[in-house]
């Protein structure tokens, strides 16, 4: 079976478990990157998209570890995941 293609976290279907493949840290502002690390985002972690504020492409909410975190789309776009 073919390995699933990586996709940006932003485009992950809701409630589908995935693993973080890469995070384009260089695309994020330093405070943003630091907060993201503090929330436990790193390569290899499981992540799940829970909600999208669809109106005018608002933020997304995702589960990381045992926490729910709200991110803006540009940040979610910098995180690449593969579905489990």
């Amino acid at each position: 079976m073919l390995a699933p293609a990586p996709l940006p976290l932003e485009s992950l279907p809701l409630r589908r478990r995935a693993t973080i493949a890469t995070i384009a840290w260089e695309l994020l502002a330093p405070p943003e990157a630091r907060r993201l690390r503090e929330f436990g985002f790193e390569e290899g972690m499981h992540v799940e998209l829970l909600h999208r504020a669809t109106l005018f492409r608002g933020p997304v909410a995702c589960r990381i570890g045992r926490m729910t975190v709200a991110l803006r789309r540009n940040v979610a776009a910098a995180i690449t995941v593969t579905t489990d």
Binding site: A29, F39, A61, V69, A70
Partner: peptide, 10 residues
């Protein structure tokens, strides 16, 4: 200036 965005624990 550049906006710092929105990142929050729920």
């Amino acid at each position: 200036g550049h906006s710092s965005g929105f990142m929050m624990e729920m």
